[in-house]
Write a protein that binds this DNA or RNA. Structure first.
Lengths: 139, 139
DNA sequence: CCCAATTGGTTGCAGTTTGCAACTCTTCGG
DNA sequence: CCGAAGAGTTGCAAACTGCAACCAATTGGG
């Protein structure tokens, strides 16, 4: 079932490591709720979207919510889905730094006051920044 | 060329959003250098591995390095590849929280002193934690 | 209350990607 | 030199994607 059963990175990639799942979660965080919301924002093929919504729901990242005024299906992020926020922010920041030419325009993430969100950096318990050289994986 | 030309998340996913690229980068951060290093650690099919190494090199995440004592090809992360560290750490932490059953064992990330790396949280300039509700995307 | 448009999918099919296994070519160790 | 290991490449079968057409259930307008 899992690509590498003991590695959390591998399991996470198994769940959201395809071309569309993270973009669906991104749009859900930005307010998308209905099938057509997602379809129009991402431009994904409808059958693939249906499949991804099913899988994300099965994995517990999305859930069906009862729309107050009607029976039309709505999707909302679960706590696990919301918890991908940090992943999407770091991915966005990496993209801003390395996937755009200098001067090429792109969207940015701002907080409630309109201030740019600072780079997210993993830190040790004492607050010092960490890199792959100063960390290791323990089984 | 890009799924969504103005969204850094989409561009990042275009580069590393498949089942193997991030695991290759993960293993590179953990010391993998040669074709067979990657092949044995990930278990990926050899033709796919060759393709991914080519693409990651073309995108500037990996580079060929001249091995001091020999002509065998070696791969090393570039600065852009190293910069995925924060992404991999957040992904790992998400996986630890949401892709394992309670009590199911998994590897953990520790710093040079053996201390667990604390959860990575996006924060505003004033240090307060951010969520998808307290941030927005500005074009 | 009824008809048409909208929503939320499913189905069929063609093209692409992936995975496995076998094969090649180079290099290293003795 | 000779054999083994490293680094890929090639050929194919199976799985996954995308497009377009189709279908059933809601909903909105008159």
């Amino acid at each position: 079932m899992w690509t590498d059963p003991t590695c959390p990175v591998a399991r996470a990639v198994d769940v959201i490591g395809d071309r569309w799942s993270l973009l669906i979660v991104r749009d859900a965080m930005d307010g998308a709720r209905s099938f057509t919301d997602f379809q129009q924002r991402t431009g994904i093929a409808r059958n693939i979207l249906a499949d991804r919504l099913r899988k994300l729901t099965a994995h517990g990242l999305l859930a069906h919510v009862e729309a107050p005024s009607g029976k039309r299906r709505q999707y909302a992020l679960t706590a696990a889905g919301e918890d991908l926020f940090a992943v999407i922010v770091t991915l966005r920041q990496w993209g801003e730094r390395h996937a755009f030419e200098a001067g090429e325009p792109h969207s940015v993430l701002v907080d409630a006051h309109g201030a740019l969100v600072p780079p997210v950096v993993p830190t040790a318990p004492d607050g010092s920044p960490l890199t792959s050289d100063t960390t290791s994986v323990r089984k």
